[in-house]
């Protein structure tokens, strides 16, 4: 680790870990800094997709994260202070030693998730209106999403699914390539539409290609496969379901404008790419609840719940 001049030991700060935090958080060892951003540090250790995002209070709330809440009026030093990619950070039994603070996990939380069947009652008009305003990061993404859905709908088309998936994983620049964001959107969309089996099939297909993309993106894809998402994405669905009226919101302006505002908060184009995938499912399906009997809680969902 690069040393920075430290006049006193960094303060101890309580932190909350999501249930998706990788196991290595609770063991002893070192993690590598993948990225040090203004309000977040991405750490990696163990398997390719075992990434932990250490977030300041006002950062985008990625699902596989440890969050450091603000302290009174001030927010303390940003978690990324004194870190650059490639640095090693000591982790032991729920404690993370950063130059700016010694974090101690005191609580676990369940990140935002898409409920199975959450798209029931969604306003088709609102979906179409929003879809027309999306600005995906790459051309042709909506078509690629459609290809994936077509492959899922064609029984026995494992090759077709593999091909259409492979065409998206890792495609595009940035820490979370556009193709990955679209796939994540499709996974979440399938879940919202109640198509659990399709979602599981796609997740499996995606899992085969995780090494074709960044560790961070791989971790987010896995999370999406289980229905975990950003609060903004869930808010987007809530907004679409209530015809654009966002409960408790004081912003005036069209529902589409409000949805776009949510998406603009997510990365450079990631929000729009996610929505491209999500809405591809909803416009194909329009929230028809699954005819297959899907248990409300899948087996690995409960697993996530108990191992808090």
């Amino acid at each position: 680790m690069d040393h920075i001049a430290v006049l006193s030991p960094p303060p101890l700060r309580p932190a909350a870990a999501s249930v998706l935090a990788p196991d290595w958080l609770h063991r002893s060892g070192e993690a590598t800094v993948l990225a040090a951003l203004p309000r977040a540090v991405y750490l990696h250790a163990g398997e390719w997709s075992e990434v932990l995002c250490v977030l300041d209070a006002d950062a985008l709330r990625l699902p596989n994260s440890v969050v450091v809440p603000s302290v009174g009026i001030g927010t303390g030093r940003p978690v990324s202070t004194g870190l650059i990619p490639g640095d090693a950070v000591t982790v032991s039994a729920g404690r993370i030693e950063l130059p700016s603070a010694r974090l101690e996990v005191r609580r676990t939380f369940r990140p935002a998730s898409i409920r199975v069947g959450a798209a029931v009652g969604i306003d088709g008009e609102a979906v179409r209106a929003l879809r027309a305003e999306l600005r995906p990061g790459l051309p042709g993404l909506a078509d690629a999403a459609a290809d994936v859905l077509a492959a899922l709908d064609t029984p026995g088309s494992t090759d077709g699914l593999a091909a259409s998936t492979r065409a998206l994983v890792g495609r595009g620049p940035g820490l979370t390539p556009s193709g990955d964001d679209v796939l994540a959107g499709v996974l979440l969309g399938l879940r919202a539409a109640g198509r659990i089996r399709a979602s599981a099939t796609l997740a499996e297909a995606v899992a085969a290609h995780l090494r074709a993309t960044t560790s961070l993106s791989a971790s987010l894809l896995r999370a999406a496969g289980d229905g975990w998402c950003l609060p903004e994405v869930r808010a987007l669905l809530d907004g679409l379901r209530s015809g654009g009226a966002v409960p408790g919101s004081t912003t005036s302006g069209s529902p589409v404008a409000h949805s776009l505002k949510l998406l603009d908060r997510i990365g450079h184009s990631s929000g729009h790419d996610l929505a491209t995938g999500l809405l591809a499912v909803l416009t194909a399906d329009r929230g028809r609840p699954s005819t297959a009997s899907a248990p409300i809680r899948s087996a690995h969902h409960r697993e996530r719940t108990l191992h808090a």
Partner: peptide, 26 residues
């Protein structure tokens, strides 16, 4: 379903206990 984001008025120990649990509290 959401993260608790808390505001507190009155006895300080409630807010302190929440901060100890890494809950956002004002």
């Amino acid at each position: 379903a959401d993260e608790p984001v808390v505001v507190s008025a009155g006895v300080s120990l409630f807010a302190e206990a929440l901060a100890e649990q890494a809950v956002a509290v004002t």
